[in-house]
Design a protein around this nucleic acid. Sequence first.
DNA 1: CAGTGGTCTAGACCACATC
DNA 2: ATGTGGTCTAGACCACTGG
Lengths: 244, 244
Amino acid sequence: MNSVQGPSFQPLYLQIKDLLTQSLDAGEWKPGEAIPSEMVLAARYKVSQGTVRKAIDALAAENIVVRRQGKGTFVATHTEEKSSMFRFLRIRRVDGVDEYPHRRLVDIRRGKASAEVARLLLLRPGEAVVILRRVLEYSDEPVVLDEITLPAALFKGLTKARYDAYRGSTYSFFETQFGVRMVRADERIKAIAADPASAEILKVAVGTPLLAVERVAYTYGDRPVEWRRGLCTTKNHYYLNQLG
Amino acid sequence: MNSVQGPSFQPLYLQIKDLLTQSLDAGEWKPGEAIPSEMVLAARYKVSQGTVRKAIDALAAENIVVRRQGKGTFVATHTEEKSSMFRFLRIRRVDGVDEYPHRRLVDIRRGKASAEVARLLLLRPGEAVVILRRVLEYSDEPVVLDEITLPAALFKGLTKARYDAYRGSTYSFFETQFGVRMVRADERIKAIAADPASAEILKVAVGTPLLAVERVAYTYGDRPVEWRRGLCTTKNHYYLNQLG
DNA sequence: CAGTGGTCTAGACCACATC
DNA sequence: ATGTGGTCTAGACCACTGG
């Protein structure tokens, strides 16, 4: 059922994958919901089940959907079992115990995108942004001091009260409250000395070496929608990475 | 052609994948060589080409093997194009230019595995190890100070002269000279202050914040075969990570 | 039981590399 | 022209879930 292929050839299953991504992006199926079965999608797109399967396999490999045998294929969520909660949280306790930190919002303020943020988030310089400052606490110990910058246009009505009231991870909050789902991120890590303000919040001496982690997070279609910078104490914690 | 399945069921294509991994491990096909074609493997294992294909797909997804349309499937190498050279090297210049560092071996010494190294590399405490100390230089600037610990049993005849004489990456050296191919690694990152000895080598002030990167690298079958600890200046460089 | 995803097969054809 | 991997199809059967 493959149509005539234009000059810029793309396999059928990748075309189907793009169509599915568009539907996901448009919110046709919400996070946590099931997408139609392979047979139904095959009928809709007039291709064989095997081709739909390959398209879904590709989405599953990117953690955009989750397959569950016997039940169906579901739009991935940041509100899930432990396994996926640590996908975007690489900080671990040195003793190896998996602990999900308590997040304490220091303040929210509105501002204009700096040249750097505008460049990274593909905004016009000076465009409105929302900036959250947070502290992540592990067993009541402050470990990470965060600053999260978001395009205001996508996060209308983001207030401290709403953030504090939400139970669950920050990306789960973004996803359920603003329909912005993070699918991928790039991080750059440096080591820096604690400045007085950060040192006080993290309860370390001024000049203590900290990890400085900068992140750009992307939603469907590789659109950047979050910039964050975190300072992390590594007295009792480390940053975990798997190279494969 | 599936045989009767015992109590611990495993799909045929995963069984084939394991057989291929064993052959790879045994050196039946060396890095850089082509493995037999899908048709030939299908005949050998008495399964369909599609099943062999799924097995190879799984190996390709883990970067153990590389497919090249029209040519064949090849055992992956650390001696390849730029794209794969940075798979285990996450240090980048802040200006974004991709530069492969010059490695300078400080010394090689032999010793016994500490309790920690023995635990991580699954050795008996006190078992013989080889320890390399290196400096990685980017544009003549020392950036990383490394200490690499290897089980002596796997790296007989490793001398400074041989290391210095080799052209190519360290993992390429291990692979071609000792038949030990790294396929995966875990890294743990902390921020620490430069001690006097390290500071001098890296040409930074004592107390300068550095990244401390600890790595355990694994070969086929998840067998740990390298432990390393690196100290990295982040004045002009950073550690890059992709979360997906 | 019916419906879902998961595996396996067999065959056709396409794209690419090499001779 | 031949051989390789890449795509697509159609159908059968298995494994899991839930009514």
